[in-house]
Design a protein around this nucleic acid. Structure first.
Lengths: 185, 185
DNA sequence: AAAGTTGTATATACTAGTATATATATCTTA
DNA sequence: TAAGATATATATACTAGTATATACAACTTT
């Protein structure tokens, strides 16, 4: 639902073609929500079909562009979406969990290795996010970049939670093997 | 990729029909990964197409069941998947983030209200997870239910991270309005 | 035993997201 | 200015996930 309504929000600002919509979406949601061109076009086609958006063709014959414009119905849909709370909590769909669920209770060492590899990934992710935050706030946090900074924080909080959970798993798994928990460091 | 490989893992244990696969998947991954019957059938069709699974028809004519069986190729695919680290970190795709990105910097009060509503959702989620953990561990945590317990912890850690982030947002947003940060409690 | 409920099983039409190909336009530098 | 690189723009074929309809089987209540 988010890409659909995101596109409506962008078109509420000004009419744009598919390529521009992709760039605009990235500018607002990039980092926490990647869209693909294919998705932009198929989503916008549905919006047109439902009468939330209308399209017109511009440019010379050799290079036509379809420019999309929001309708009254589209504006209403967007505003309603903003007002309505997002009732569904996103599912915690992580491939690692499925792997762990299938590996356990066999292969304790393989599980510990998998967890160690995942930790490295999350640490790398945190480093990257921290770098992005630094670049963003070199000249201080202003109203203009506050939300971007907060969204980077959300990603950081979740990466931290993942790492904390991996360490929690390592301790529990070792406890169940009768080994003493790993010491700090 | 996870549903596909999860189904292979289940069929590596024993041949099953679509309905049984759905139940088996729920038993292992339920809570952190919900699958839908439609997805089971379309995924298994692809597995058959790729030669990782073969199907045979059982039951009387009025009530036919298609029973699926894993092939050598399928077993290899499953084992390779288990061994290979899951390089991609799941994107933090949350509808709330998109809403916030579009609401900001307008409607500070609407943003604060949205955040408050989300907090309630996460608190309810935590209560539910805590209840599930309690039910699971009434008779103690054993090797049999350790992984289930750990996966519930993962969900709890993430809900905690969401709540922590919401509070972080509230403080930052209020700071930028020149108001003092909210006091504890 | 007819009626209603729950469980078993599959199908279908849809939305959402990914991967990649293609073609023209513009910029850039040898 | 021709060659090569980058930006603009769309299309297509695919995988992944959701919502809902359908149909028969088995249980269960009157």
């Amino acid at each position: 639902m988010s890409v659909k309504h995101g596109l409506l929000g962008l078109l509420a600002q000004k009419p744009q073609n598919g390529y521009e919509l992709k760039n605009s979406f990235d500018k607002i949601a990039g980092g926490f929500w990647d869209v693909n061109y294919g998705q932009i076009y198929s989503t916008i086609d549905r919006l047109v079909k439902d009468g939330l958006v209308i399209s017109s063709v511009e440019g010379k014959e050799s290079a036509e562009r379809r420019v999309y414009q929001i309708t009254e119905k589209g504006i209403k849909e967007f505003k309603d979406w903003l007002d309505k709370p997002s009732a569904k909590i996103r599912p915690l769909r992580d491939e690692v969990f499925v792997k762990l669920a299938f590996m356990y209770p066999f292969d304790r060492d393989a599980i510990l290795q998998l967890l160690a590899e995942q930790r490295q990934l999350y640490l790398a992710k945190m480093a990257e996010l921290t770098r992005q935050k630094y670049l963003l706030s070199r000249n201080g946090i202003s109203r203009d970049n506050l939300m971007t900074d907060l969204l980077l924080d959300a990603a950081l909080f979740h990466a931290e939670a993942d790492i904390k959970w991996i360490e929690h798993c390592e301790v529990k798994l070792r406890e169940f093997e009768g080994e003493p928990p790993v010491s700090d460091g």
